[in-house]
Design a protein around this nucleic acid. Sequence first.
DNA 1: TGGCTATTTGTCCCTTTTGCCAAATACCTG
DNA 2: CAGGTATTTGGCAAAAGGGACAAATAGCCA
Lengths: 96, 96
Amino acid sequence: MLDNERYTYMASVMKAMAHPTRLFIVDELDKGPKNVGELTAMVGIDMSTISRHLSILRHAGIIAATKNNNQMIYRLLCPCVLDMYKCVLKIKEQED
Amino acid sequence: MLDNERYTYMASVMKAMAHPTRLFIVDELDKGPKNVGELTAMVGIDMSTISRHLSILRHAGIIAATKNNNQMIYRLLCPCVLDMYKCVLKIKEQED
DNA sequence: TGGCTATTTGTCCCTTTTGCCAAATACCTG
DNA sequence: CAGGTATTTGGCAAAAGGGACAAATAGCCA
């Protein structure tokens, strides 16, 4: 398979997005930066789990964090990920 | 989490893309329809595994298949998935 | 029908992912 | 320093993902 490394990298970024909770987080961060507590309250699962989701998105380079006192403020780095939604919706239309 | 079903659906489509071999297949099908044997030769792993990858992409609505004699010809349904690459590359640039 | 080619499906094994709880860490404040 | 709040990390269990091999299925041709 030609250029395997490229595909592996691309897949890793897409995998980071490919989870309902993480897509929700990305959507929320697109509206504005938020801390872990706020996101936890919105999603309604354990904060440790949210923290891990945020870590996955951060390592993929999709979001970034800044420390504010004892809080971590997360923000969306690349709003272009939201364009992926458009394509997914186009696929959905095709099926109906 | 608001509108959970929407996020679950979107995640399932993105998950279908989130694998190096499947991204490669999508890229190849973008150049033109191909049968399972051709894709297997290009990727270099077991045909049964390729077949399952194709099944995953088909169920996600990303590709479609037509039977030609005893071959299955796969084709890309929604070339817009390739636009996702652009965003991933933008993310990569940001990191360097 | 029997054999040949192309593809899919069943099964097994191993690895990764996800979620929870509890413990650790970080930072502020009295 | 002690206590409080915010977040991350370790460990564990359940579930899902990925690959190989063998067996099943489908369609063609003699």
